[in-house]
Nucleic acid binder design. Sequence first.
DNA 1: ATTATATTTTGCCATATAACGAATTATATA
DNA 2: TATATAATTCGTTATATGGCAAAATATAAT
Lengths: 129, 129
Amino acid sequence: MAKYNNINLAELTQLASALSDASRVRAFMALTQGELCVCQIVELLGLAPSTVSKHMAVLCQAGFVQSRKQGRWVYYSVSPNLSTAAICQMQQWVTNNLKNDGTVKQDRKKLRAIKKMDTEQLCKNQRKG
Amino acid sequence: MAKYNNINLAELTQLASALSDASRVRAFMALTQGELCVCQIVELLGLAPSTVSKHMAVLCQAGFVQSRKQGRWVYYSVSPNLSTAAICQMQQWVTNNLKNDGTVKQDRKKLRAIKKMDTEQLCKNQRKG
DNA sequence: ATTATATTTTGCCATATAACGAATTATATA
DNA sequence: TATATAATTCGTTATATGGCAAAATATAAT
């Protein structure tokens, strides 16, 4: 079915703003490889949990990602966007254009390692260091 | 011919940043109707010339628009982007998604009036008021 | 040459944003 | 029930950004 929802100027600048920060774009690109919990994104980006949390909130509010809570963990994933064409198009644009970016490639590699780790252990290590 | 130039993370966030401000997006949308000199954009947006100049520099540096100087006037226009696919795609995305935006519609109307005015007279009025 | 003027650059101010650590919240475990 | 903990919110700081006015630049007109 065709997507017909229009966005307005404010919504467009909100979408653009969400993608105006490298850490947020990296987080989004990481999620295109599958859902991640906050501590995994923290590990990937090397930022404080509070900072990552705020970044994810921005991506969520823009509509690029969604979250689900399971126990103490919150998992983020790329939103399916059944309604808004503009968001789908931007998701595609980011994904396609950064497919071969150096940082994104490195992140993918690091991400594979992170996913192999036990999440409990990952969090424990983050508390210490 | 297919466009194959890739962009990196920094370039992508630069493009997004350029579109993260409503005044800049309005200026860009105005230029999709044809080239404009600075004073015409000043008239449309109701901002100081220095502010508009800075906005246009940001759009230029990102690659969304280009400028040509003719005498004392500088004309801005949507860049043809023969090289970078990412920029073309974003130009299309903005144009398509804001086609029916309220502010953009108002701007188009105001723009038709501005284009009918004598540019010399327009500048003269701006110096006064 | 001198003056006028369209645009840009510079300097400044107010606000927005990214970062962190500390405090808070919500959930699981002992 | 009390404790531990993953994530968020809050408070603070440093930097970035948008806005204007004034100064500087470049070009046209006198």
